[in-house]
Amino acid sequence: MAIAHRPKAEPSPRKAEAAPRKVLVVLHQQCSSPGRIGRLLGGFGHELDIRRPRFGDPLPKSLADHAGAIIFGGPMSVNDEDDWIRREIDWIGVPLREEKPFIGVCLGAQMLARHLGHRVRAHPQGRVEVGYYPIDPTEHGHLLCERRFPDRVYQWHREGFDLPNGATLLARGHDFEAQAFRTGPCAIGLQFHPEVTLPMICRWSARTQERLDAPGARPLHRHFGGWLRHDRAISRWSSAFLRRWIDGAPPERPKAQGAEACALS
């Protein structure tokens, strides 16, 4: 009896590996929160990998297992001599080398500027930004996502920086010039706080009331009034911006005006 030979089954194609869903979140106080940004990323389906290097948490040597990373703010200065601050500034080279989506918020933006070789310093007249302030978005800022860049934002800082060499200015301020910038394909520095919620405003103002007395600070009632007037626009922009950023989508390029094309990007 002849034995029928069955043809060998074709090997099944390997399933494409799923894109990493974790987002590294770096915080600097035990009570710190990623606020609105954390809530939005969770709503997009991302897991937050929260670490506090100040209290001994290690930072990963690679972001291969992460979709991106965000360094948030804190009351300390990048000019402090603490070892963990130096290590965190140096670590920013990881997302830059790997071209992973990265955001620095307030202190995180100052760390990014310092990593790029720029000085971070106090205002020459000792002024601060604490509360809601107007900023002037550039055309590049408006093209980060489909929502226009907000022109009133919440601030809480006493130091600032100039635009790092080779970076693209996204928004400028009055007392502190560089309010937002992009470097490389997907690294963003934001001097202001798009993550802030109303409970966070209450908590910050209660714990550091002396900041409200510094030159240039807004009185507390204007913080609450500013939240009522401006937070909806900031929230809508934050959602559109974060969705595009975490997908690694590059910003659109400004259209040429006549014979001249904008060469900032």
Rank of each mutant, 00 (worst) to 15 (best):
M1W: 03
R6M: 10
P7E: 14
A9L: 12
A9Y: 06
A9G: 08
S12E: 15
E17S: 13
A18W: 03
A18F: 03
P20A: 09
L24T: 09
V25G: 01
Q30E: 11
Q30W: 06
Q30D: 12
C31T: 14
S32N: 14
S33D: 15
G35A: 07
L41F: 01
G42L: 08
H46G: 01
R52G: 03
P53Q: 12
G56K: 03
G56S: 07
G56M: 08
P58D: 13
P58R: 02
L59G: 11
L59Y: 06
P60L: 06
K61D: 15
K61H: 13
S62R: 07
A64K: 12
D65P: 07
A69S: 08
I71K: 02
P75L: 02
W84C: 11
E88Q: 14
I89S: 06
D90V: 08
W91E: 07
P101K: 00
I103Y: 02
V105Y: 04
V105P: 02
C106K: 00
L107F: 11
G108V: 02
Q110E: 15
M111A: 15
R114M: 05
L116G: 04
G117C: 09
H118A: 13
P124T: 10
Q125G: 08
Q125N: 12
V130N: 05
P134M: 06
P137V: 08
P137D: 04
G141I: 03
G141D: 07
L144M: 15
L144I: 04
E146W: 01
R147Y: 07
D151E: 12
R152I: 00
V153T: 10
Y154I: 05
Y154W: 10
E159W: 04
D162G: 10
L163F: 04
P164F: 02
T168L: 05
R172E: 14
E177V: 07
E177P: 01
E177N: 04
R182Y: 05
R182A: 13
G184W: 03
P194Y: 02
E195G: 00
V196R: 02
M200I: 11
I201L: 09
C202G: 09
S205G: 14
A206I: 00
R207K: 13
R207Y: 01
T208N: 10
A217Y: 02
R218K: 13
R218I: 03
L220V: 12
H221E: 15
H223W: 11
G226Y: 00
H230L: 05
R232K: 14
R236D: 14
S238Q: 09
S239N: 13
S239E: 15
S239P: 00
G248R: 01
A249R: 13
R253H: 10
A256P: 09
Q257C: 09
A259N: 12
A259Q: 11
A259I: 12
A261V: 05
L264T: 11
